[in-house]
Amino acid sequence: MTTYHQRVAQQKRALIVRAATQLFLELGYDRASLARIAEEAGVSKATLFKQFPTKAALFDAIVIDSWAGGDDAEVPSVGDLTAGLTTLGRHYAALLGRPGMVDLFRIVIAELPRFPELAKVHFAEGKLPYFETVRTYLVAERDAGTADVADPRMAATQFLGMISNYLFWPRLVVPGWTVTPERVVAVVDDAVRTMVARYDRAG
């Protein structure tokens, strides 16, 4: 494809994903037809089907777009648990703060009873890759002898939970919940200090 056609295709893809997200929220995953999504996006049904042959493929795209960059996070160098966890924590906070993230979780939660596969896709393609980055880093610190982490999976869950429980989950249920950039930094730093106090071998 030429650069121009690639740009047009990307623009149409973005319109489709945005329209699908809104209709999944308004109508539910089941009732939001691909034809209606194409209409709301202002594209032909042929264009939509060319990029997303099924509704499941379209939902996959919403998940991938929401978490884009999460699975590309590099595992920090070992030797400084505070620095490594700070890097990972701030990246995670940035992912959770993206505008479409709350909408994605609302879709998954609303459709969980009828479409549990959406939650599985969300976890497998969304959070799990970033979770594995944190776990891999903790394993590396343990193997280097700089951290005493008997259960890296539990430790990664604890770390990400401390961040998301303040920065993200209240946004789903508390109207008007906002967090200043300064507070984001403070929440991540507090989570890091807690982890270092618990797991840093030097401490």
Rank of each mutant, 00 (worst) to 15 (best):
V149C: 01
T136H: 15
V108N: 10
L167C: 02
G100C: 02
A140K: 08
L104I: 04
G100K: 08
K120D: 15
M162N: 09
E132L: 15
Y130N: 09
L167Y: 05
P152Q: 03
G100Y: 00
Y166G: 00
E141Y: 05
E125Y: 07
D148E: 14
L104S: 09
V139Y: 07
G161H: 12
R114G: 09
E132Y: 08
I107D: 00
G161S: 14
G161A: 11
N165T: 10
V134I: 14
L112R: 13
V108Y: 04
V149Q: 06
L96T: 00
I163C: 08
P152N: 06
L112Q: 14
N165I: 00
I163V: 08
P129M: 08
K120C: 12
Y92P: 04
K120T: 11
L128Y: 07
A94M: 07
L95F: 06
A110F: 02
Y92S: 01
E125P: 01
T157V: 14
M101I: 13
A140G: 08
T136F: 03
K127T: 14
H122C: 13
P116D: 11
P116E: 05
M154Q: 15
L160Q: 12
V102L: 10
P113R: 06
E141R: 02
P116A: 09
Y166V: 15
F115A: 12
A150Q: 12
E132I: 11
V149A: 02
Y130A: 07
M162T: 01
V108G: 02
G100Q: 15
H122V: 03
L167H: 02
D148R: 12
T133H: 12
M154P: 00
V102C: 06
P113F: 03
H122D: 14
R142M: 10
F123M: 10
V134D: 08
T146Q: 08
A156N: 06
F131E: 14
S164D: 10
K127E: 13
L104F: 12
P113V: 13
V121F: 04
K127L: 12
E111D: 03
A155Y: 09
E132V: 13
E141V: 13
R153T: 08
